[in-house]
Design a protein around this nucleic acid. Structure first.
Lengths: 122, 122, 122, 122
DNA sequence: GTGGTCTAGACCACC
DNA sequence: GTGGTCTAGACCACA
């Protein structure tokens, strides 16, 4: 796996985000079987417990479910995935506005500049 | 100063970003005198050489200038500051669209969702 | 057999409860012949002596009786079975009220909430 | 602390139930400070991690909240506590009916017997 | 082999 | 001192 690690944010949260992205972006399909906790942990170079914690939270949020003996699966409820995707997007938008506000752009100014960027292409 | 450090991005770039933000957001005013390199470095808990490199870059971009005898100052050219601010904002917008694209939102879908978020308050 | 064992309660009492349930719930019919002590003990993974003790108690209470030559049988006295069933139920009710009291519900409050639960479906 | 341990149910769930009871029954008052994770763990003779897990879940359910440096507290939202208490009671009622059903009592028969037990006092 | 639980012991940030 | 995170390694039930 080996993606960028941020040393300030807890690892298990980063794992959650990563797996969420894999799911909502469609890299993993609904109903797909996930590798075992141990394999995922080895892959991410973290302790199995840490991976377990991440997966448990994902299970709580409904994005994955586990069958004790046969493994862990991505939910086949597309609506739930779509919903998670939207929530992430909304959160991204909120962060965006917050960062723009730090630069002194209010909502209207932000929208205006955003339109300009789009028009000017690339 | 003491802000969160990211271990992936070069430190001097992080310093530049931080100081840029202080300038364009108005936390530091045009014409303000900056502390000495040494003090800034101590404050940021970095090597003076690293801070020096950051300040040199800022000088090259025109946001700060140094007077050999009296120290280093923030430019009093408001247009230049405004310009820097806009560049940062445009960069922020680009990153935003890129992240939304990772979530599977194209430009129009992004705009639509963005309008919704604004309408629904927050 | 193989049911969950509780390590705090004496095993023979757990065996009694289990067999009582089998009888009063009708899983074993009045007059049915029971397997041998040995078989029952193997089935429950307990020492034959322990099973013997349980069966003796059940015999004392009248739920089972033994015929020296042909084995051990469940009583065919339906009234006795019905009585045992009622005793278990009453005990269950007492425990229920005791638990509700621990939650701070007196008898009337318990009855009220119980009616609500029944009304709202289940 | 030293209360009865059940070896089949996960320890952290038993811890949750125990603490829940302490809260909803009023043994601990709203706003009360809880002992530190370590102390609670020693008290319950479990690993700090296990106690931490229990407390985290209680925090998720809203019954307790934590302040990073000063400790953990019982919520001062009485309505939330009352709500938790009711949920536990409803769950108790459901289990009661389920056990009565195993004894062959339907809802009406259960209610009838229950009234009788109450009338006969004791 | 799977998910899940548990322990022992470490380290961190915060105040 | 607090809560929180993380690792290493063990054990269990299930099928």
């Amino acid at each position: 796996m080996a993606w960028k690690m941020n040393d300030t944010e807890p690892i298990y949260l980063q794992l959650i985000e990563k797996i969420q992205m894999d799911i909502v972006s469609g890299r993993c399909k609904p109903g797909d079987k996930l590798p075992s906790v141990r394999d995922l942990a080895v892959d991410a170079a973290v302790n199995p417990n840490t991976m377990q914690k991440a997966l448990s939270e994902l299970e709580r949020s409904g994005l994955v479910f586990s069958q004790r003996t046969s493994g862990r699966f991505i939910t086949d409820d597309s609506a739930m995935i779509a919903n998670a995707r939207k929530n992430l997007a909304v959160e991204e938008i909120r962060l965006f506005f917050s960062r723009m506000q730090q630069l002194g752009y209010n909502e209207n100014e932000t929208l205006e500049l955003l339109q300009n960027v789009l028009k000017e292409g690339a």
